[in-house]
Amino acid sequence: LRTVEMKKGPTDSLGISIAGGVGSPLGDVPIFIAMMHPTGVAAQTQKLRVGDRIVTICGTSTEGMTHTQAVNLLKNASGSIEMQV
């Protein structure tokens, strides 16, 4: 596991798309980074990659989380965001 910290302002975009989660079209698979926009906050860290499994978001485990719950957690996060992948 590695921990990645990002700074995100209220109008900034992380610039990632995620897939997976409980009840997702892919089945109940762990949440992972499906796409990254090169100008997004996540890409700027140069520490995240497409395919990385997201284990925690700001200390909250993604295990058993639906896709929608994970998306909302990421969208609503601002300031210092910590992810374990």
Rank of each mutant, 00 (worst) to 15 (best):
I57R: 04
K47A: 11
Q69L: 01
M65H: 04
T68P: 09
N76A: 12
D52N: 00
T62L: 09
V50P: 08
V41G: 03
T45A: 08
G40W: 00
V4A: 08
T45Q: 08
E82G: 06
G40I: 01
P30H: 01
G40N: 00
L74M: 08
V50I: 12
I18N: 00
G79F: 08
S78A: 12
T68E: 14
L14N: 00
F32P: 06
I57A: 05
L73C: 09
G27C: 04
V22Y: 10
K8L: 15
T66A: 07
P38D: 10
T60I: 14
L73W: 02
M6N: 00
T66E: 07
K47F: 05
E82V: 14
V55M: 14
V55P: 04
D28Q: 06
Q69W: 03
I18V: 11
K75W: 07
I33G: 02
A19K: 09
I16E: 02
M35N: 15
S17V: 15
L73F: 12
I16G: 01
L48W: 02
P30M: 00
I33N: 04
V41R: 07
N72E: 14
G79S: 08
V22G: 03
F32Y: 15
D12P: 03
T66K: 06
I16H: 04
I54L: 10
V85A: 07
H67S: 15
A70M: 06
T56E: 09
E63N: 09
V50G: 02
T3Y: 09
T45I: 00
L73V: 10
A43N: 09
H37N: 14
G79T: 09
G27I: 06
Q46Y: 00
A34N: 11
G64C: 06
D28N: 11
I54S: 01
G40T: 05
P10K: 12
H37K: 13
F32L: 05
A19E: 13
N72R: 11
I81C: 08
R49M: 13
G9Y: 07
K47S: 11
D52T: 00
K75R: 13
R49T: 12
T39V: 08
Q44D: 07
L26F: 11
M36D: 02
G64S: 09
G51K: 01
I33A: 05
S78G: 12
S61L: 06
G15I: 05
G79E: 10
S80W: 11
G64Q: 09
G20H: 03
I81W: 02
D12M: 07
C58R: 09
K7Y: 15
L74E: 00
D52W: 00
L1F: 12
A77R: 11
K7P: 03
G23N: 09
T56V: 02
S24A: 03
S13L: 13
L48S: 04
H37Q: 13
L14Y: 09
G21L: 01
I57K: 02
G64A: 07
Q69C: 08
A70T: 01
V55Y: 09
T68Q: 14
G15V: 01
D52A: 04
L74N: 07
I57F: 09
N76K: 13
I31A: 03
K75G: 10
Q84Y: 01
P25I: 10
M35E: 15
G79Q: 07
